[in-house]
Simulated scan of single mutants.
Amino acid sequence: MSDVSRSAAYVYVGPTELRQGVTSVGGATVLDIGDLERFLSQRPASEVAEPFTYVVDTAGRLLLAPRRSEHVACAGGEAVLGAGEIGFRRSGARWSAEYVSNQSTGYCPDLESWAAVARSLDRAGIAHGTGFTHAIVFRCCPRCEGWNVVREQTYVCALCDADLPVERTAAP
């Protein structure tokens, strides 16, 4: 069994009009340090100083786009193994992912998506920590089917006040 087949794929759950506007993959593929350096060298310094939008596609590849890009555009509308924001830092010749989140309201990836993110960073030779530096818990409401960010361990839908499941389940 491959690493990819053990990972859950997340389908896009955001606004339909954003998905319909996607015509191709908008993210730059980062398979190694050279790819990362090329991507960063094509960005203005102000953009390099802030996190980027990222997805891990279903082949386990890291794709990057400018921060204000939609995750669904970065992924070409396809399912992903992980999505969020990522910031890089260089120390000598070594690159590291200094900031990594699962902040993507279009895909709402669970905390377990870290494994796929870590594998994609490992494959590219990018150092990283042991988990998300900013982790977000998403839950889908069983009543209204709206996706929610769980804040302060309060599992209540912000849209309809229904109780949210504590454990993640598939979308209704």
Rank of each mutant, 00 (worst) to 15 (best):
G106P: 07
L111V: 11
E98Y: 14
R61P: 04
Q103M: 12
G82A: 15
A49N: 14
S91A: 14
D110K: 02
R61Q: 12
L62F: 10
N102F: 06
R90I: 03
L81T: 01
G60L: 03
G84A: 10
G82N: 04
A75M: 05
S91P: 03
G84R: 07
E78A: 14
F88D: 01
S96Q: 11
P51A: 12
D110M: 02
R89F: 08
C74Y: 04
R90W: 03
L63D: 06
G106H: 05
P66G: 08
H71S: 08
G92K: 07
A49S: 15
Y107L: 07
R67S: 10
V48T: 13
Q103V: 14
S101I: 05
R90M: 01
V72S: 06
G82M: 07
G76V: 07
R90A: 06
G82S: 15
I86C: 02
E85M: 08
P109V: 11
E50T: 15
E50R: 15
S96P: 00
V55Q: 03
G77N: 03
G84S: 09
Y54R: 04
L81H: 05
G76F: 10
G87M: 12
L63C: 04
A93F: 13
T105N: 11
G82C: 09
A75L: 09
G82I: 05
S96K: 13
Q103L: 15
N102K: 07
A79M: 01
D110F: 01
H71R: 09
S96A: 13
A65N: 07
D57L: 06
S69T: 14
N102L: 10
G76A: 08
E85R: 07
V56I: 15
I86Q: 03
Y54M: 09
L64E: 06
R67A: 14
G77F: 07
P51Y: 09
T58D: 10
E50G: 14
V100Q: 10
A93N: 13
V56E: 01
P109F: 05
S101A: 08
R94N: 09
V72F: 10
S101D: 08
C74N: 12
E98F: 14
I86S: 01
E78Q: 13
P109Y: 05
F52I: 00
F88V: 06
T53F: 04
T105K: 07
A93D: 15
A59F: 09
E50K: 13
D110S: 13
Y54S: 02
D57G: 05
Y107A: 11
E85K: 09
H71I: 08
A75R: 00
D57A: 06
C108M: 10
L63W: 02
L81K: 00
D110R: 11
R68G: 13
T105L: 12
V100S: 06
A79F: 07
C74W: 00
R67L: 14
